[in-house]
Design a protein around this nucleic acid. Structure first.
Length: 240
RNA sequence: CAUAUGGUC
């Protein structure tokens, strides 16, 4: 049943199905509602998602949990409605819910996409005050935001200063960084970073190589592109 | 391994 809800990425059907349940005297549980809310958010129908959340808060149905709030925050962030996202964040805190890393990451991601990097750093401070450590998802959002706002130097120092020492880096982070460097025309430097990552024993995935090949092509570095392709094969990756 | 967050296309 839940699988069905996930697969139907059709908000209308989703809502109908849920109403159907209610009418048959099957009150949806929090998991069900979270799934529905997620579906609504994905379809950018955050208003309706918020309505369900309101119902839950009033106590008409079951009680929302951290995931419920996080999901709505994500939906709002993705639409760039950051003020509203913060409203929900504060509200959940007032109600005694503790946002977790995923909650914060959702809002940080939204801030970075909106190029409000300073604000994003403030949120990181807040989460650290609450005893939460930023994880690799947090870092990816930040690096991505810095690159998109042409603050490559900051991205690099963030990488060297914070991310690498935290030993919390993965494919996503350095791929984001490498993409920013390619876009800035720093292909050679990007390769240096990649080599460093390889030396540290990390195995970049296909997307990492795709980004570099794309970067090389954009910069007219045909030989470099082939070179990367060969390196990919050496690492037992099949180009997609 | 029942629901929420990040990278290329």
């Amino acid at each position: 049943f839940l699988y069905a809800l996930c697969t139907i990425n059709n908000p209308g059907e989703l809502l109908n199905f849920m109403l159907d349940m209610v009418q048959r005297g099957c009150p949806p549980d929090v998991l069900t509602l979270n799934t529905v809310i997620h579906g609504l958010c994905k379809a950018s129908r955050v208003d309706e998602a918020k309505k369900i959340l309101d119902d839950m808060k009033i106590g008409n149905v079951c009680t929302p949990d951290v995931i419920t709030f996080s999901t709505v925050i994500r939906g709002l962030s993705d639409l760039g409605w950051l003020d509203e996202a913060f409203d929900i964040l504060h509200e959940m805190q007032q109600r005694g819910y503790s946002p977790n890393v995923l909650t914060y990451n959702a809002i940080i991601h939204g801030l970075c996409k909106a190029q409000k990097i300073d604000k994003a750093f403030e949120v990181i401070d807040e989460m650290e005050c609450n005893g939460l450590r930023p994880d690799s998802v947090t870092y990816t959002a930040i690096i991505d935001g810095l690159c998109e706002t042409a603050q490559l130097q900051k991205a690099l120092s963030f990488w060297h200063g914070i991310v690498k020492p935290s030993r919390n880096h993965d494919d996503f982070i350095y791929t984001s960084l490498l993409r920013g460097m390619c876009k800035a025309g720093e292909f050679v430097e990007a390769r240096n970073i990649l080599d460093g990552v390889l030396k540290d024993g990390f195995a970049p995935g296909i997307v990492t190589y795709n980004v570099l090949i794309d970067g090389a092509c954009e910069l007219g570095l045909k030989m470099e592109a082939y070179d990367i392709l060969n390196q990919m094969r050496e690492n037992n990756l099949t180009p997609d």
